[in-house]
Simulated assay, not measured.
Amino acid sequence: MRDIGILPANLAGIVLESCFYGTFLLLFISNVYFLAARGDSQTTRHNFTSLMFLGAAGLSLVITVHWVIVIYQAFFAFTYLDDKAAETTFYLDATHWTEIIKQTLLLTSILMGDSFVIYRLWIFWGRNRYIVILPIGSLIAVFVLGTLYVVSMWEPRLGGATTYTQPTFWVGASFGLSFLTTIYGTGLIAFRIVRTRTRTVMESPLMALLAILVESAALQTFWLTFVAIADFAGSYAGLIASDTLPVVIGISNLLIHTRVGLGWSQSSSKSQRSASTGKISIPLTSNSNRQDSQV
């Protein structure tokens, strides 16, 4: 993938991100409908003021601005610049204001995605604060390293530096820590789901696998892995992957809300009892007003 070229990579990233963004919008609108249609006015008001919905709304704003910046870059490069060399230089310039904003939004989406994984992990494990100490520490480190990287992009000496084919220590460390957070959270959430399902309900293996993949944010983990591998392989495929990472994080989290809105549950109504710890009831039906499971 080294010979893909930065201009074709950016065009492919625009197309892929736009397709994903359309899917994201459909999921977001569907979730707004599900929340508005569920229960009485008091329940609806609670749904729209819940922490997870406000987080999803904030993430949707980040994703939308990121997509707009990517579209603006394409129009600027292919409309106002004179030749291929100028277009290539523009996309390779890490200090251009559009690139700085785009990288800031990428960092913000990663931090929000990791926060959602940590919050769900905390809920699934009965609000056990010890289970989230490690990922919270990793989240703080990602914030610090990512901020240092974004600040460094303002330095004039980086003008014209390649953004994707020469990942800095800060970028590598940030992606590595975020990867560990998502792997840690996804693995423990999946383990909790499997153990709870085994004890409470028998269901289609396909539906069980689908629920595990959705609720553990496996899509987010997979795409972050793709970004890390492509970047450190020195491939411009990393550009495509990183440009689409914010919207993939959004889709991964909205799938969880959609699962709840459609009435999928982690078990049938017969299994609506607490997990083995007795601290949290994981299952959620479509008519439930509880918000702890809608994470």
Rank of each mutant, 00 (worst) to 15 (best):
V171D: 03
N253W: 02
G172E: 06
L262Q: 11
Q166A: 13
T244R: 02
F175P: 00
R197D: 03
A275K: 00
I280H: 07
L245V: 09
R290W: 02
P246Q: 09
L255M: 15
F222Q: 04
G172D: 02
I189D: 00
A241Y: 03
E203G: 05
A190H: 02
V247A: 01
S271R: 08
A217L: 10
K270H: 11
T168Y: 02
S252P: 06
L206W: 14
R290A: 09
T277I: 03
T186Q: 07
W264D: 10
L224R: 01
G172R: 05
V201G: 01
V171P: 01
A173N: 09
R199V: 05
S286C: 01
V201E: 05
M202V: 11
P283L: 10
A230P: 05
T198G: 14
K270N: 12
A237H: 00
T182L: 11
S235C: 03
E215H: 13
S252I: 10
T196R: 01
L209T: 14
L206P: 04
L209N: 11
I212H: 04
F232W: 15
A228D: 04
P205I: 09
G172Y: 01
V247E: 00
V214Q: 05
Y184I: 08
L245C: 05
D243W: 05
G185Q: 03
Q220N: 11
K270L: 11
W264Y: 15
G234R: 02
F169N: 11
S274A: 15
T162P: 02
N287E: 14
G172H: 03
M207F: 08
